[in-house]
Design a protein around this nucleic acid. Sequence first.
RNA 1: GUGAGCGUAGCUCAGCUGGUGGUAGCACCGGGUUGUGGCCUCGGAGGUCGUGGGUUCAAGUCCCAUCGCUCACCCCA
Length: 424
Amino acid sequence: MSIRALKGFKDILPDEAGVWQHIEATAREVFHRFGFTEIKVPILEKTELFARSIGEATDIVEKEMYSFTDRNGESITMRPEGTASVLRAFIEHGLQVKLPVQKLYTIGPMFRHERPQKGRLRQFHQMSVEVLGLDHPLLDAEVIAMGWLLLDELGLSVSLQINSLGCPACRPAYKEALLSFLAARQDKVCEDCQRRSSTNPLRVLDCKSAHCQEQYQAAPSILDHLCPDCADHFRRTRAGLDLLAIPYQVNNFMVRGLDYYCRTTFELLTDALGAQSAVGAGGRYDGLVEQLGGPKNTPGIGFALGMERLVLLLSEQQPSAGLSQQADLFVAALGEAAGAKAFALLHLLRKKGVRVAMDLAGRSLKSQMKQADRVNARYVLIMGEEELAANEAVLRDMASKEQSSLSLAPALDQVCAELIKKLN
RNA sequence: GUGAGCGUAGCUCAGCUGGUGGUAGCACCGGGUUGUGGCCUCGGAGGUCGUGGGUUCAAGUCCCAUCGCUCACCCCA
């Protein structure tokens, strides 16, 4: 067998690339409308950056990172997510002094060493946005609204779930209440949940087992344990969503896999993707900038959208976008003299911005017509031996099949100009 | 890391209880049209049946191993 791509690494073939471009272009346009600007950050970072931001004890850091030692003996990692790198850049370049509130987005590949499955790859792509320097609850609503609007403009319908995870002031008390609840039911829940009770107690609430969910009906809710500030923030965030008429469900069992989240968290969910139901997710991370060595009191909020999942959804909802027009004109030449003249004309047309295709292999006219059809050319310029002898070429409209002749007598750039006139 | 399913042409797949790999569909190339596309028609090219062992007179088919893919668990976008 010849060399194949790595497990979990996929080629995006020409047929699919159009969907990707469409998603990316739509996203950029929406992000710009909301005042976001692009930031491009490296794919490799020091391992420590991710360990400190995502959390040492998370699955991502513990077992999913592509980390290795480079030639200097330093541990570096291919980024598993985008937020850490963006914050690092924000801090490193002191961006907070340029604008009190920074709205940034970045688009690119992420890497996690997991077992691939539908909607989950080892190299995958995210579009992620971050707002740094403001903790107003209306901002939470605005950021969520932007994600919602983008998906809407892509023609996708998803559901929105939100929750609040509290803050360092109120979460510990909740955690204790939850732990004592779980301790009383250790023998009534699945093995996974028993294990999670000690590793990451909040996660048990996420369990998919119906039996466990039944047990957790009576579990204490984080929302009942929020401190006054957090409760107020959550209430005003929801009020903001209400003002924008964005429907949501409060899911007090929703937990996030990265340690840095606090207060508002949310997920944009679909039921069309099997096990990978989240097409986008994010939340607030108020302490993170400071934790990474940045200025104190720099709150942040952001989310990421999984591009592969968007592509899957789009191609499921609206299969095959149809043939795209890849050429305005196809030049079909027969014989060497005509070929040479056509080749020169081809370049002149391209210099003028016309999308022109031509067969360089000297194949039959029929074959060239087929090629013209395949690239969906509107016109074909036929330059055969007969035409050349009469100093003419035939211009054929592929849709109407009408043909007209064009004089090749003047200089080639005049022919080119004449031709462009006819094309328009 | 765990479990299940599947590997036959570039793609989608037939191939029964073992008996010579399919006129299969799509795509590709050429002819029918000595110089005109889509539709039609005729022809052509394209394969280590994932790989390595084993059973057998005989293996795409049965057994074992291995690699790969897919889906699910876990986790996540």
